[in-house]
Design a protein around this nucleic acid. Sequence first.
DNA 1: GTTGTGACACATT
DNA 2: AAATGTGCCACAA
Length: 107
Amino acid sequence: MEREKNSYQKIYEVVKQIPRGKVATYGQVAALAGNRRWARVVGYALHVNPDPEQIPCYRVVNREGRLSEAFVFGGINQQKLLLEADGISVEDGAVNLEKYQWKKTVC
DNA sequence: GTTGTGACACATT
DNA sequence: AAATGTGCCACAA
């Protein structure tokens, strides 16, 4: 009798495992969570964001390395501040995925 | 129980 | 090259 929301739990686990100074895309998180198609569910999971203190949604960006304009947990500006606080350079609300995309480095 | 929407990604036109 | 449509899963009404 497992608790439902297994999907969400998985997503939260992945997002919480994002190292400091890196960002992950929805597709990346979804793929690590089990299925890439969950990209949408990932967005929704972060939308509910039951644990914003342990789920750095600001480290989760879309495919373009850019956050959604609908981002509403303090304003897109907050995201920039948080990412810069992690040592990530933010350009117009977007980051260089080539440099900051979390690659789940085995080491 | 069905329909519609959604913080996305990919393929096709 | 850009824009559009489709697919996937989960939740709300």
